[in-house]
Computed example of a mutant assay.
Amino acid sequence: MDAIDEQIIRVLRANGRASFSALGREIGLSTNAAAVRVRRLERSGVITGYQAILGTDAPDEVSGLEAFVDVRLDTDRDSEEFLEWASDVREILDAVHVTGPYDYLLRVHTRDTAALDGLLRLVKREGGAAQTQTRLALRPRRASAGPGSQRF
């Protein structure tokens, strides 16, 4: 790595979407020379990727956490009453009555772990849950690319 590579990295840190021509103008290279250097930095592992940093105004569907919450209701809580309550909670995307040791499986979406903690407390305090078990979604399911493509 030389001084020009360091300049490239400085510019890309400030604006990862800079075009090769803008990058070249900024550091005094032609568009092609800038492209060659960026590709070399990528191949050598100095640049491993680009990312979008979402601000606080990003829609919840784009940022945040998706989780699955198993809910066991208090013995005195009515199942239909819980379902009606859950339908009014914005963070609960889906509530499915299930068999097994839990009564419901919830699919939820919150902005961060603190909001998830608050939602779990709400489910217990107001929803009548005696017990919950939570799993975080690490990777969303991607939509099919077309007929015959593998979904999972």
Score class of each variant (00 low, 15 high):
Glu42Pro: 09
Ser44Glu: 14
Asp88Val: 01
Gly49Asn: 09
Ala58Asp: 03
Arg40Val: 02
Val46Glu: 09
Leu65Met: 10
Leu54Asp: 04
Pro101Ala: 11
Ile47Gly: 05
Phe82Met: 07
Ser63Val: 15
Thr99Gly: 12
Gly49Tyr: 09
Ser79Glu: 12
Leu93Gln: 14
Asp57Ala: 12
Ser63Gln: 10
Ala67Pro: 06
Leu65Lys: 06
Pro101Val: 08
Ala86Thr: 08
Phe82Pro: 04
Asp57Trp: 01
Asp88Pro: 01
Thr99Asp: 05
Arg43Phe: 00
Pro59Phe: 01
His97Asp: 08
Ala52Leu: 14
Gln51Arg: 12
Asp78Met: 05
Glu66Thr: 15
Arg43Ala: 14
Ser63Leu: 12
Gly64Pro: 02
Leu83Cys: 06
Val89Met: 04
Arg90Leu: 12
Arg43Pro: 04
Glu91Met: 11
Leu54Trp: 11
Val46Arg: 11
Thr56Lys: 05
Phe68Asn: 09
Thr56Asn: 10
Glu61Ile: 06
Val46Asn: 01
Gly45Asp: 08
Ala58Tyr: 03
Asp94Gln: 15
Ala95Gly: 13
Ser44Tyr: 00
Asp76Gln: 13
Asp60Ala: 13
Pro101Ser: 12
Ser44Met: 02
Ala86Trp: 03
Ile92Ala: 07
Arg43Trp: 00
Gly55Cys: 02
Thr99Arg: 11
Asp70Ile: 00
Gly55Lys: 02
Asp76Tyr: 11
Ala52Lys: 11
Gly64Trp: 01
Ile53Trp: 00
Phe68Cys: 00
Ile47His: 01
Ala58Pro: 01
Val62Arg: 05
